[in-house]
Simulated scan of single mutants.
Amino acid sequence: MTKTVLITGCSSGFGEAAACLFADNGWNVVATMRTPVEAYAEYPNVIVTKLDVQDRESIKSAVSEGISRFGQIDVVVNNAGFGLFGVFEGTSREKIQEQFDVNVFGMMDVIRETLPHFRANRSGLFINVSSGAGVFGLPMISLYNASKFAIEGFSESLSYELASLGIGVKIVEPGGVLETKFGQRSGQEFSSSATPADYEPFITGAAAVFDGLRQSRGLATSEDVAKVIFEAATDGTNQLRYVATDDIKPLIEKRRGSSEAEYMAFMRRRMTPNIR
């Protein structure tokens, strides 16, 4: 029987690329987004529907529509998210709440809505899109880091809870992919923040750190990340974490393969801005 995947955040980036890849491989796809647009017309096995992770009624409606159209949902890809960029003190509590509402609580609500369907079938798989920022901390993205660290811990713990029910949980960890709209929104969020002037030297130095990271990056694309998401959905293993882009592999290897002292010395050398 043809399998069905529901993907959040399909208007661009990883979600759009994943929706096309699954459809090209014969899957039924429930491509969801906050504001549905005319897309995927060339795919008869794709439906586009509204799902705003901050609106639980829209989550319920999208899941129901997917099941009604295709009979069941086999995989859910929690991809929707955004990143706050800037120093913590310059970010309002309202923006922090939004960061967690979208990246963490919205993901949890999608899982909560789908779980009864998966339990009834004694099968199903959740793939939660995390980030390298869910493994290691970086300057200027403490709140995005916090949300992705939360996804990592929640997903691992949930995987233990659901294994006895035949339901899987996996995490995909991409790094920087420059052609997505993620950086554009992060820049807009930063421009609207109220940062104390005392941080200006740090921010200038941190910008140089990020420029260095960008210059050393590989040329990963959304399609590359989509391939890893598809692999996680189809490889038949119980592997928990998948590193999706080469640029973050050295940092992840340091985090997971070094002592705490070695790791922190490495990161402080590489990530601490040079302030004069």
Results as ranks from 00 to 15, higher is better:
37 V>K: 15
20 C>F: 08
190 F>M: 14
260 E>A: 14
110 V>Y: 00
274 N>K: 13
199 Y>A: 09
174 P>I: 04
269 R>K: 15
269 R>E: 15
66 G>S: 08
223 E>G: 10
1 M>T: 11
4 T>A: 01
209 V>D: 05
270 R>Q: 09
194 A>H: 13
249 K>W: 05
265 A>K: 15
147 S>D: 04
46 V>Q: 04
165 L>V: 03
151 I>Y: 01
51 L>H: 02
142 S>E: 13
119 R>P: 04
157 S>K: 06
33 M>P: 06
55 D>G: 05
231 E>S: 11
5 V>C: 09
267 M>P: 05
17 A>S: 13
114 T>K: 01
15 G>V: 10
236 G>E: 11
60 K>A: 14
213 L>A: 07
251 L>K: 03
222 S>T: 12
125 L>S: 06
26 G>N: 14
76 V>W: 06
223 E>Q: 15
26 G>T: 11
72 Q>T: 14
82 F>C: 04
163 A>H: 11
34 R>F: 09
143 L>C: 01
185 R>W: 13
246 D>K: 14
226 A>I: 05
230 F>S: 04
125 L>I: 10
116 P>R: 03
25 N>I: 06
266 F>Q: 05
148 K>H: 06
115 L>K: 07
22 F>K: 02
144 Y>N: 03
135 V>G: 01
189 E>Q: 06
64 S>Q: 10
40 Y>F: 15
169 V>E: 04
169 V>F: 04
92 S>E: 06
268 R>C: 08
181 K>A: 14
216 S>A: 15
250 P>F: 09
108 M>C: 13
178 L>Q: 10
247 D>G: 10
77 V>H: 00
133 A>Q: 08
62 A>R: 00
6 L>D: 06
207 A>L: 12
176 G>C: 10
160 Y>F: 13
19 A>N: 06
230 F>N: 01
242 Y>F: 15
14 F>H: 08
228 V>G: 00
201 P>G: 02
171 I>Q: 03
189 E>S: 02
276 R>T: 14
146 A>D: 09
50 K>T: 13
115 L>R: 08
193 S>V: 05
82 F>H: 13
124 G>K: 00
